[in-house]
Each structure stands twice: as structure tokens, then as C-alpha cells.
């Protein structure tokens, strides 16, 4: 079982859209896939039409009173399951802080699902916290959406430093440009330059498209309702890159 997480300190950069679409493509390719919506806002949960409710909340999970398996829901898409968000996840940091080895809890919660799933996709809340430390420890590939702006690049560099200084097991970090508007010169230039300046930023970029915003109306991954769109092609290419990166992880 491999674990991918979409993560950024900033919000609104396309984490959830990437998580949902990548999970969709993984399932379409025959991987038994679980998407875990760790963000208390529950956007991924909403997009997949699942009610944002986990019995016992995040506290019961963290304390081991319930397992992840108890809360998983099948989605409308073959091979794709969802661990929904719950508003109580807003306190997940506090819940984690009260446990032994608080930075390793998510990895241990996922361990019993090893035989059941080929891939877990974690959709993370935007913050630097115990939750994000947990995610970094649990993950094989950390997928970081970057909006084409210099400040975003600076934040990405900080994140790389943060991962580098972490003790123990480290994920492979993959940055990708998100919400790229090719009409804007600055976007075009950054999209051209960034992958060559940063070895960990991949060339596969997600364009800014209306269909991606329409996910909230359609409540489905882009390929499910706009299979011929350029956004679908972009997410598929990004998934291809993630997949080949995963085969290189141990």
C-alpha cells in the first residue's frame, strides 16, 4: 500500500481537486484506492456526495476506540472509497497531542488497511501542525500544488526545508503548478522556469479551468462529467507522474 498526500501550508491552491481527481484515476487504473479527507472543511467529502460524519469523531479514531475501517464509505466510483471528514477534525491536533508518539499516529491508523488498499490519498488541511507532521511521516509521495506566484515558491522552499530537517522516514516531495492561467505572462514564465529551477517540481501542470470549479456543482471528479476537457487530461498526466514516482518508492 502506497500513500500520497496533497499538502500545502496555504489554502485554496487546488489540494482537494488534485486529491479527488488523482484518487479517481488511480481507481480507474484498477488500484484499490482510499481517499481520506483530513480537512475539517470536508470539501473532498462534499465533492463525493458523502455526509461529513465519522462516528465518534477524530478523537475516537486517534484514541483507537474506532478504526478507520469503521468509517469508510464506498463512493459512486468502482474501486474508490472515502474516509469522510468530520468537523471534529478541527481538534485533531489536540487529539494527537494527547497520544504517545503523536507524530506517527496516522501511519499506524493506516497500517491495518495495508492488504485492503493499493493506494491511500490523504487530502490535508492547510497548516503546519501535528497533523501535517503525521502526514509527512505516513506518506510516500507528498504532492504539493503551487500557484504560479513567487511567494508560493518561497513557501514551497520552506516546506522542502521542513521535510529535510525531519527525523526518520521522509517522503518524496513533488511540486506541481496549479491554477495556471496561460493568458497571464507571469504564469507562463513561471510554468516554464520552475521545473528547471526546482528538480522536485514536475512539468505536469493543472490549468485554471471552469470545469475544475464546476466540481462543486457536479459533485464529482472532473473526468466523470467532463472527460474530454483539458483539465481531465492535465490531472491524468499528473496522475501518470505520481504513479511512476510511486513505483520508485520503497
Amino acid at each position: 500500500m502506497k500513500v500520497v498526500a496533497t499538502y500545502n501550508i496555504k489554502g485554496g491552491v487546488g489540494k482537494t481537486s488534485a486529491a479527488v481527481n488523482i484518487a479517481y484515476f488511480a481507481a480507474r487504473d484498477g488500484l484499490r484506492t482510499l481517499l481520506w479527507d483530513l480537512d475539517p472543511q470536508g470539501s473532498a467529502t462534499y465533492l463525493l456526495r458523502v455526509k461529513p460524519k465519522v462516528k465518534g469523531g477524530g478523537d475516537a479514531l486517534v484514541r483507537g476506540k474506532r478504526t478507520l475501517g469503521d468509517g469508510i464509505k464506498g463512493t459512486d466510483f468502482d474501486g474508490l472509497d472515502l474516509m469522510p471528514a468530520d468537523f471534529s477534525y478541527r481538534n485533531l491536533d489536540l487529539d494527537l497531542d494527547g497520544t504517545k508518539r503523536p507524530t506517527d499516529r496516522i501511519r499506524r491508523l493506516l497500517a491495518p488497511l495495508r492488504k485492503e488498499y493499493d493506494l491511500v490519498v490523504l487530502d490535508c488541511p492547510p497548516s503546519v501542525s501535528l497533523v501535517s507532521e503525521n502526514v509527512v511521516h505516513a506518506t510516500d509521495v507528498l504532492l504539493v500544488p503551487l500557484i504560479p506566484a513567487m511567494l508560493s515558491v518561497r513557501t514551497y522552499d520552506q516546506l522542502i526545508d521542513f521535510v529535510d530537517t525531519m527525523p526518520g522516514r521522509k517522503p518524496q516531495v513533488l511540486g506541481f503548478l496549479s491554477m495556471v492561467d496561460s493568458r497571464k505572462k507571469a504564469h507562463r514564465e513561471l510554468a516554464a522556469r520552475l521545473p528547471s529551477d526546482h528538480a522536485s517540481v514536475v512539468a505536469e501542470a493543472i490549468p485554471s479551468r471552469v470545469v475544475i470549479e464546476q466540481m462543486a456543482e457536479e459533485r464529482a471528479p472532473v473526468p466523470a462529467f467532463a472527460p474530454a476537457s483539458s483539465a481531465t487530461a492535465a490531472y491524468e498526466a499528473l496522475w501518470g507522474r505520481v504513479r511512476s514516482s510511486l513505483t520508485g518508492t520503497g
Binding site: 463525493l48 456526495r49 458523502v50 455526509k51 464506498g74 463512493t75 459512486d76 459533485r219
Partner: peptide, 10 residues
């Protein structure tokens, strides 16, 4: 076919 709940979810 599918049975859907009030969220339109199968």
C-alpha cells in the same frame, strides 16, 4: 442502476 440518498449519492 443505483439507489441514491438525499445527497444524490449511490
Amino acid at each position: 442502476g443505483r439507489l441514491l440518498d438525499d445527497e444524490g449519492k449511490t
